[in-house]
Amino acid sequence: MVKEIERAGIPVVHMCTITPISLTVGANRIVPTIAIPHPLGNPALDKADEKKLRRQLVEKALNALTTEVTGQTVFDK
């Protein structure tokens, strides 16, 4: 699905836990996430900390969208 969105001319970032699959499928901007059943959360944290974690991940995604890339890039920093 990311490829079709990219093909339509819209920059897209893929946030997922199993990054090798994302690379195989052909996403260009990839942000690794926490876990399969809760990619953007961690139920072990309290509500405020969990939201902070989610925000950090989304900010990474925004950073990926504003970064020029020439090929597949995993934003894991």
């Binding site: 001319g9 819209i10 897209v12 997922c16 836990t17 996430t33 990619p39 953007l40 989304v58």
Partner: peptide, 13 residues
């Protein structure tokens, strides 16, 4: 595109 969206965040589990 028609709605003028500039970027997409796609999440996967």
């Amino acid at each position: 595109k028609a709605d003028g969206v500039d970027a997409v965040i796609m999440t996967s589990t």
